[in-house]
Design a protein around this nucleic acid. Structure first.
Lengths: 123, 123
DNA sequence: GCACTAGATAGACAACCGTCGATGCAGGAC
DNA sequence: GTCCTGCATCGACGGTTGTCTATCTAGTGC
């Protein structure tokens, strides 16, 4: 079974702790590829920071300065990768960040040998 | 000048906390692009997990199953992105993960609203 | 029904990327 | 000096990607 956020085999094992398997590397690179475009990074940030944590296409098309089809294209990629969720509501399509999806990637990138560089949020 | 680890403007501000600037998005996507290839993810992992935290090209060419020029090409990209460091030692070139480089990306991806999903390493 | 709007899809095009074999270059052994 | 080894660079090739315009679909209001 695969969770909605896309956590699978490589869940929570830092990249640098042990050699990653080819399959896990492929799966992981698929997600990084979704983040490998400045427009998609901005879209992700805009959606997350929008009020209510969700936004429709019309909310974010103008800020990125690209055509509506191009924005739809990028959003589709982010949805297919499991980073964004799409919910149709009437004429509008609302996008939101999938909880835990980015956190999973964050965990994989964490350096297991460096404990003080993480800026722990715990008080 | 840019620090070895590549920390710049977008340092430590989670992607989802506020809309990222176009420049920061470009800089960030540049690093994710370096991770957007399964071979480079494996190389990074192989180097980090190799004894001493460093490896020469000959150590990692065979595990990834690609030609030596291709491996050199990928390593160069990882160095240029600030994720790997290169040190020439006689005939050999040793590569190692730049301390904090991945941690920086990890911080950017952390979800500021979810505190319990991080698996804090502190004892 | 019709008109309008939000968004997805299709097709095309230039630019970029991953891979290879061939070659170049520098260090070590002799 | 010559030879060998480890690695980088070059040039080429096919596949992928980001963007656009044009078009299509579906929901809303009249």
């Amino acid at each position: 079974m695969v969770t909605p956020a896309g956590q699978d085999a490589s869940c929570c094992i830092p990249l640098t702790a042990a050699p990653i398997t080819p399959d896990d590397a492929t799966e992981l690179s698929r997600k990084f590829k979704a983040l490998a475009d400045p427009t998609r990074v901005r879209l992700l940030s805009l959606v997350a920071a929008h009020e209510g944590g969700e936004a429709c296409v019309c909310d974010i098309t103008e800020p990125v300065g690209l055509s509506q089809p191009t924005v739809s294209h990028h959003l589709k990629i982010l949805v297919e990768t499991g980073l964004l969720a799409r919910e149709q509501r009437g004429t509008w399509a609302f996008y939101s960040v999938v909880p835990g999806a980015l956190g999973h990637l964050s965990d994989v990138l964490r350096d297991p040998t460096a404990r003080e560089t993480q800026g722990l949020v715990k008080g």
